[in-house]
Design a binder for these strands. Sequence first.
DNA 1: CTGATGACTATAG
DNA 2: CCTATAGCCATCA
Length: 119
Amino acid sequence: MDLETRNQRIYGVIRDVPKGSVASYGQIAEIAGIPRGARQVGYALRCLPKGHSLPWFRIITASGRIAFPEDTRAFRIQRDRLREEGVRVENGKVDMKTFRWQPDLDELLWKPRDTWDED
DNA sequence: CTGATGACTATAG
DNA sequence: CCTATAGCCATCA
């Protein structure tokens, strides 16, 4: 798998993270089919193209912390954008139990017809 | 090629 | 909660 394909998959997964939820770097990597690729997700985000419209701010560490130091511009932007969507950010931390994206459940809500055995 | 780096993670004390 | 440690792996100097 080449670099571009990998990044496209990473971006694709991030695009699917619903508003009001967050996901960890490792979670994105796993869903994208890149085991132990948490750092690669961070790397891909660091190299985001200029005009992107990716919800990069919905990606945080597995412990629920924003990955940037608190005294940085990036930290404040991420925190504010999460709050705009209703995600509670206290002391740079998000309660993962409450806001973590759960793809399986989400898929059920999205495409019930295709996945439910209705017969 | 080699060693350092980092928007990571899990575990232990 | 915090620090230390050890994996991790694409990039980069």
